[in-house]
Amino acid sequence: MPAEIKPPLNPTLEEFGARVRARRIELGLSQEAAAERIGLHWTYLGQVERGQRSTRIENLVRLADGLDTTPGKLLDGLPVAANSE
Protein backbone atom coordinates (compact mmCIF):
# COMPACT_ATOMS: atom_id res chain seq x y z
CA MET A 1 0.00 0.00 0.00
CA PRO A 2 1.54 3.38 -0.99
CA ALA A 3 2.44 5.81 1.78
CA GLU A 4 0.22 8.84 2.22
CA ILE A 5 1.72 11.93 0.60
CA LYS A 6 2.10 14.73 3.13
CA PRO A 7 1.14 18.22 1.99
CA PRO A 8 3.38 21.25 2.65
CA LEU A 9 3.06 22.58 6.20
CA ASN A 10 2.17 26.10 5.01
CA PRO A 11 2.54 28.43 2.01
CA THR A 12 5.78 29.93 3.35
CA LEU A 13 7.54 26.57 3.52
CA GLU A 14 6.04 25.51 0.21
CA GLU A 15 7.50 28.55 -1.58
CA PHE A 16 10.83 28.28 0.25
CA GLY A 17 11.11 24.64 -0.80
CA ALA A 18 10.25 25.52 -4.40
CA ARG A 19 13.09 28.07 -4.40
CA VAL A 20 15.56 25.54 -3.00
CA ARG A 21 14.47 22.96 -5.61
CA ALA A 22 14.65 25.49 -8.45
CA ARG A 23 18.18 26.53 -7.47
CA ARG A 24 19.30 22.90 -7.17
CA ILE A 25 17.90 22.11 -10.62
CA GLU A 26 19.46 25.30 -12.03
CA LEU A 27 22.83 23.97 -10.84
CA GLY A 28 22.11 20.59 -12.45
CA LEU A 29 22.29 18.69 -9.17
CA SER A 30 20.32 15.66 -8.04
CA GLN A 31 18.94 15.77 -4.49
CA GLU A 32 21.65 13.35 -3.41
CA ALA A 33 24.47 15.38 -4.97
CA ALA A 34 23.10 18.64 -3.59
CA ALA A 35 22.65 17.16 -0.11
CA GLU A 36 26.24 15.94 -0.10
CA ARG A 37 27.47 19.35 -1.25
CA ILE A 38 25.32 21.11 1.38
CA GLY A 39 26.21 18.70 4.18
CA LEU A 40 22.66 17.53 4.92
CA HIS A 41 20.96 14.17 4.46
CA TRP A 42 19.10 13.81 1.15
CA THR A 43 15.83 12.92 2.92
CA TYR A 44 16.03 16.17 4.89
CA LEU A 45 16.62 18.13 1.69
CA GLY A 46 13.64 16.40 0.08
CA GLN A 47 11.39 17.35 3.00
CA VAL A 48 12.55 20.97 2.79
CA GLU A 49 11.90 21.04 -0.96
CA ARG A 50 8.39 19.66 -0.45
CA GLY A 51 7.64 22.23 2.29
CA GLN A 52 7.26 19.48 4.87
CA ARG A 53 10.06 20.66 7.15
CA SER A 54 11.00 24.03 8.56
CA THR A 55 14.75 24.55 8.68
CA ARG A 56 16.91 26.06 11.40
CA ILE A 57 18.98 29.15 10.71
CA GLU A 58 22.19 27.10 10.69
CA ASN A 59 20.77 24.83 7.99
CA LEU A 60 19.43 27.78 6.02
CA VAL A 61 22.98 29.14 5.83
CA ARG A 62 24.27 25.69 4.79
CA LEU A 63 21.57 25.40 2.10
CA ALA A 64 22.40 28.80 0.66
CA ASP A 65 26.15 28.19 0.73
CA GLY A 66 25.86 24.75 -0.83
CA LEU A 67 23.59 26.10 -3.58
CA ASP A 68 25.88 29.07 -4.31
CA THR A 69 23.32 31.66 -3.30
CA THR A 70 22.47 33.79 -0.26
CA PRO A 71 19.93 33.21 2.49
CA GLY A 72 18.27 36.45 1.40
CA LYS A 73 17.62 35.18 -2.11
CA LEU A 74 15.93 32.12 -0.65
CA LEU A 75 13.86 34.15 1.85
CA ASP A 76 13.08 37.58 0.37
CA GLY A 77 9.41 38.07 -0.42
CA LEU A 78 8.16 34.74 0.94
CA PRO A 79 4.45 34.71 1.80
CA VAL A 80 3.76 35.00 5.50
CA ALA A 81 2.10 31.90 6.94
CA ALA A 82 -1.18 32.58 8.72
CA ASN A 83 -1.18 32.16 12.48
CA SER A 84 -2.88 29.03 13.69
CA GLU A 85 -4.51 30.94 16.57
Score class of each variant (00 low, 15 high):
L74S: 04
T70K: 09
R19D: 01
R37G: 02
L63W: 10
L75S: 02
L13W: 13
Q31E: 13
P79Y: 09
P2V: 08
A18R: 15
N10W: 02
L75K: 02
A22N: 11
F16D: 05
Q31V: 09
E26S: 14
D68Q: 14
L67T: 09
Q31L: 13
G17D: 02
L78E: 03
R50I: 01
E4M: 11
E49H: 03
R21S: 15
P7R: 14
V80H: 13
G77V: 00
A3F: 00
A34G: 12
E32S: 11
L27Y: 01
R37H: 01
G46Y: 05
P79F: 10
L45R: 04
P7Q: 11
D65Y: 13
I38L: 11
L27W: 00
G51P: 10
G39C: 05
A22Q: 12
V80E: 15
A64R: 12
S84K: 15
R24S: 10
A3N: 06
P8E: 01
F16K: 04
E14N: 11
I57P: 00
Y44H: 14
G72A: 11
E49C: 01
A22R: 14
E32Q: 14
Q47W: 08
A35V: 06
T69Y: 11
R23T: 05
L63Q: 08
I57S: 09
A35D: 00
R53D: 00
K73A: 13
A22D: 11
E85D: 13
N10H: 14
G72E: 08
A82Q: 15
P2A: 05
E36R: 11
K73Q: 15
L78F: 07
A82M: 10
L78C: 08
S54V: 00
L63Y: 10
E26L: 14
L27C: 02
E49P: 07
W42R: 15
N83I: 03
D65K: 15
G66F: 13
G17S: 02
N10E: 09
S84Y: 09
R19I: 00
D68K: 11
T12F: 04
A33L: 10
R50H: 09
E4I: 12
T70P: 05
N10K: 03
P8W: 07
N10F: 07
A18L: 12
L27E: 09
L78G: 08
Q52V: 06
R56V: 06
L29V: 06
Q47V: 00
L60S: 03
E32R: 15
L74V: 07
G28M: 05
G77D: 10
N83Q: 12
G51R: 07
S54R: 15
G77C: 00
L9Y: 01
Y44P: 01
F16S: 04
L9C: 03
P7H: 09
G66R: 05
H41W: 04
E15Y: 02
Y44I: 00
G66Q: 04
A22W: 06
D68R: 13
N59W: 06
G72W: 05
G46I: 03
A34F: 10
I5M: 07
A3R: 13
R24V: 06
P8S: 13
R50T: 01
S54T: 08
G17L: 05
R19G: 03
G39A: 01
S30Y: 04
R62A: 15
A34T: 07
